[in-house]
Write a protein that binds this DNA or RNA. Structure first.
Length: 497
RNA sequence: GCGCCUUUAGCUCAGUCGGUAGAGCAGCGGACUUUUAAUCCGUUGGUCCCGGGUUCGAGUCCCGGAGGGCGCACCA
């Protein structure tokens, strides 16, 4: 099992196993411990006893807490140790003359990495650190592997992702980012729930993965002996629920797309999709803006700006707005006529030096990405998308070549995508038929049509607005992280050989 | 898929022109009753990612491969 260990590592583990044996023979087996009465946290103690002056103590008040031993400074007959719990660090002070020789000697076998329960009273040390004066303790788990460098932490990115538990133990900023992610998502949920939405769960395994353009993962269901696909969006099922009359639904769920991996893409990622009957794209834009503004406030201490890399980005409302065609015209000089004709768009792609696109829609996406997206730093709603790249959105009244759709961009990243939903079944059927033709031209990311979805629309879907928000990227934005792996606990890695 | 970078002790990193493999931390032994990257003395520890090649001699140069990171392409 340990045949791949180096000699040094094997010796370190052997030494820790000896410590474990010593613990078992002196104060009992730490792994036999089932419970330690944890009454408080490091953070609570710092808050409660912050008023203590140097040398002052609160001897009559006993507290118990537990955590991981991260540092031990032995000074002969006393020890200073740092115990870390989920809220932070607490220093512990241990005296031989109070514990007695035998109990004090147990600390010879407690090392950096071990999990301990400690009980004592608070005082402020000579150097000003709030400290727990130890009265009683119990080893709760033994770390048989040594922890990484106490000063530099774990730097090896590969090991950080493959052994995230070690990363979380020693790198506080990683732990903070993951806690921030949890807080952001619960705050998002709270905000949405307060607006009368139902949280739902729709299937991950589908016969036809639709609602977006992406290659799906394929799998096989033994019980049915059928090939199935992992969902690439939750859109079509959520709109079925709108047809069913739930009116306001959302799902925060894992989406799977069998595409590339880089700093902004992981094959499985988290998306918020939300649908509101009787809203239109403008209602959704207001809601979207309020949600983002609220979350920025929540992570920034109620400020209206964020540090993103070298830059400070303002989230004061209202966010900027630019029409899709106007923006491309402004930064690239291309006209509506050029962009909305297949030949014109293909010519622009060639002029930009890009490889030829298989479809008109693909060409438009490339042009947008190269001409307008690099300028979208401040939060900006790009509105009035072309119909031909929006197969599920309702046409704009009086301008059928455009749809009532926007995407919110910030720091060059797409944060959300929203539109008034197409609810005309005949129009939807035609768009799907158009997609079949595009797919035949070689764009493998275009999904097969979900004809039952058209039937659902034939039962009558109320006018509805919908939105999708990439949760991982939003968390990146809100926590200032440059890589999606910094906000995903276990990013996908190649299996070791 | 293409390009660039990277892989040396448990961890963090040096390693010059091709000439006996280094440091700090951790570990081990010792001293120390308010330290906090504790300090001080002593000390163990190596498949230099893997496989070939050149050479009297390779961590170092060449070829091939693997893992990882970053760009590009693709996507969200």
């Amino acid at each position: 099992m340990h045949e791949d260990l180096g000699k040094t590592e094997a010796a370190l583990i052997a030494a820790r196993r000896e410590s474990l044996a010593a613990l078992r023979s002196t104060c009992g087996d730490p792994f036999a411990q089932t419970r330690y009465a944890v009454e408080t946290t490091a953070k609570e103690l710092h808050a409660s006893y912050g008023v203590l002056d140097v040398g002052q103590s609160a001897q009559s008040e006993r507290w118990s807490l537990a955590g991981r031993l991260m540092s031990k400074r032995t000074m002969g007959k006393t020890i200073f140790a740092d115990v870390h719990d989920r809220t932070g660090r607490l220093q512990v002070y241990i005296r031989k003359d109070e514990l007695g020789d035998e109990r004090f000697a147990v600390w010879d076998h407690l090392e950096r990495g071990d999990v301990v329960g400690v009980t004592g009273y608070m005082f402020r040390s000579k150097k000003g650190d709030l400290t727990l004066h130890l009265v009683d303790f119990a080893p709760l788990a033994k770390a048989l592997y040594p922890l990484p460098d106490k000063w530099h932490g774990l730097q090896d990115v590969e090991k950080r992702y493959r052994q995230r538990y070690v990363d979380l133990i020693v790198n506080d900023d990683v732990r903070d980012a993951m806690i921030a992610r949890s807080r952001i998502i619960s705050e998002m949920r709270r905000f949405i729930d307060a607006n009368g939405f139902f949280e739902v769960e729709t299937p991950t395994l589908l016969h036809v993965a639709g609602g977006a353009s992406a290659r799906p993962f394929l799998t096989h269901v033994n019980a049915l002996d059928q090939q199935m696909q992992l969902r690439i969006a939750t859109e079509l099922n959520l709109k079925r629920l709108i047809v069913g009359g739930l009116e306001r639904v959302y799902e925060i769920g894992r989406i799977f797309r069998n595409e590339g991996i880089d700093t902004t893409h992981n094959p499985e990622f988290t998306m918020l999709e939300l649908y509101a009957a009787f809203w239109d794209v403008h209602d959704m834009m207001d809601f979207n803006e309020a949600l983002i503004h609220h979350l920025v406030g929540a992570v920034s201490g109620e400020r209206e700006e964020l540090r993103v890399g070298e830059r400070t980005i303002s989230f004061k409302r209202p966010f900027a707005r630019v029409a899709y065609l106007d923006g491309i015209a402004r930064h690239g000089g291309y006209t509506r006529e050029q962009l909305l004709s297949p030949g014109g768009a293909a010519a622009i792609v060639a002029e930009l030096g890009l490889p030829p696109s298989p479809t008109h829609g693909h060409a438009l996406d490339k042009i947008f990405e190269h001409v307008l997206e690099p300028h979208l730093i401040e939060p900006t709603f790009v509105v009035d998308y072309p119909t031909l790249i929006s197969p599920l959105a309702k046409r704009k009244a009086g301008d059928p070549e455009l749809v009532d759709r926007y995407e919110l961009f910030c720091a060059n990243m797409e944060i959300s995508n929203a539109f008034t939903e197409l609810n005309d079944p005949d129009d939807q059927r035609e768009r799907f038929e158009q997609q079949v033709r595009e797919r035949a031209k070689g764009d493998e990311e275009i999904p097969e049509p979900d004809w039952d979805f058209v039937r659902a629309l034939e039962y009558g879907m109320p006018p509805t607005a919908g939105i999708g928000i990439g949760v991982d990227r939003l968390v990146m934005l809100l926590t200032g992280k440059q890589s999606i792996r910094d906000v995903i606990l276990f990013p996908l890695q190649r299996q070791h050989g």
